[in-house]
Amino acid sequence: MTGEGRAPLPIVPPPFRDERLSSWLERVADVYLVSLNELQSHVGWSRPALQLEFELVPADMERIASATHRSIERVLAMTFRGVPPRYRSLLRPGSRETCPACSRGMQRPQRLKGWSFAFAFWCDRHGEPLFGREMNGVSALGNEALGRRGAEILLQWAMEREATAVPVGSVLSLLLLPSQKPSPPAPWELGCLPLARQHDPAILSRPCGRPVLTVVVPEFRVAVPICDQRLPSTIAGLPGAPRAERYALAIGVARVLRNLADVIGRILEVSDAFGRKKVMALMEQWPVAIRHAVGHATPWTRLKGEGGRTARTTLFRHESVRAVSRTSQKAETAPKAFRAP
């Protein structure tokens, strides 16, 4: 199967529901014991299949449809055409996660479009966890109920059907903020590492960040040691983050929206001046009801740390913030009127 021939393929496996174009074409190539590149050469489409999922080329779509005896619409349905920009920005093109139940007995497991979303952790059909190459630390996080809740909230937000009082994007940005100024790890922060790594000079001297996520989801510090955390500083970097980081963020989003007042109070309590300044600057962009609660906060001083050093923090009017939290929870539990494409 080489050259520039355009002969239709005699045997073509049907695509699965929601299957990605690149996944289906790989399975077609397997039928003829050739690589995807060789299949591309035979059929004659111009761009890589992964790229075609995001950047449609009408002529290429027509060639693929003709060679596989499929309609143009069926081929286009395997791309990410028409998805909201926010959802598109959180897709992971190279994702290889699969569902064990869906792929049972298959030589090459199919890859579905919904599984490419940065916060997709379970198969919609079977409810089983998706498995991939980067699973380190995920089992230590646990808390599947909160993970599922957070993932659903994030999906609604990505599909631009947000239904929470506090903007979900702001909650994500909050979790990605530093709670303290970067500094070398303390001995207790390296306790879960092998002894040799605990005494590695490169690790002991490298400044590490303490994101707000570790305050809201403290188990993340156990799941992923501080020196190995690869949490991006912005939402734009989330598709490239390891699974444990993304799963911890889903748990964190659910916790923040479930009990906003207590979580914010805890964040400000454990943050240093560097972190509190960034957190308060972000919260200034929140809705009026939240900013009103913050604006009427009462500063107070308490002893903190050795030597009786004083640290100023903020005492919230928790009842005011809890009222907004309850509104947020009601919105989150409203009937869901959509699914991912």
Rank of each mutant, 00 (worst) to 15 (best):
R309L: 15
L231C: 11
M283S: 04
S271K: 01
D228R: 12
A254Q: 09
A248Y: 02
I235F: 09
A281Q: 12
P225M: 09
E269R: 08
K304W: 03
V279D: 02
R246W: 02
V263T: 15
L249W: 04
R291V: 08
L231E: 02
I235D: 04
L282H: 03
G295Y: 02
I264R: 10
A261Q: 12
I251G: 02
R230S: 14
R255K: 13
A250T: 05
I267R: 04
E284Y: 12
R246L: 04
R266T: 05
A236I: 14
V279I: 11
G240L: 11
L260A: 13
R302N: 10
E306Q: 12
T301L: 12
H292C: 06
A261E: 09
R246T: 01
M280A: 02
C227N: 13
P287R: 14
G308D: 06
V279R: 00
R230W: 15
D228G: 07
R243V: 07
L303Y: 11
E284A: 15
E245N: 10
R266Q: 11
L303A: 09
A289G: 00
N259T: 13
A297S: 13
L257G: 09
V253N: 09
K304T: 07
Q285S: 15
R246K: 08
P287L: 13
I290G: 00
R255T: 09
Q229I: 15
A244W: 04
L303D: 07
D262E: 15
A297W: 00
G240E: 15
G308T: 02
D228S: 12
L249F: 02
Q285E: 15
L282M: 04
V270L: 00
R276T: 02
A236C: 09
A297H: 03
T234N: 12
P225A: 10
D262Y: 09
F274Q: 09
G237F: 14
W300C: 07
L249N: 01
C227L: 08
G252Q: 04
A281H: 08
R243N: 00
A289C: 07
D262M: 14
R230P: 03
A293N: 01
T234Y: 10
V256Q: 04
R255E: 11
Y247P: 01
G307N: 08
F274M: 09
G237N: 12
A293E: 02
L238K: 10
A293M: 03
G295D: 06
K304F: 08
H292Q: 12
L231N: 05
F274E: 11
P232Y: 10
A248I: 01
G252T: 11
P299C: 03
S271D: 01
P232Q: 11
G305K: 02
I235H: 04
L260Q: 14
L231Q: 10
W286Q: 08
S271P: 01
A254P: 08
A273W: 07
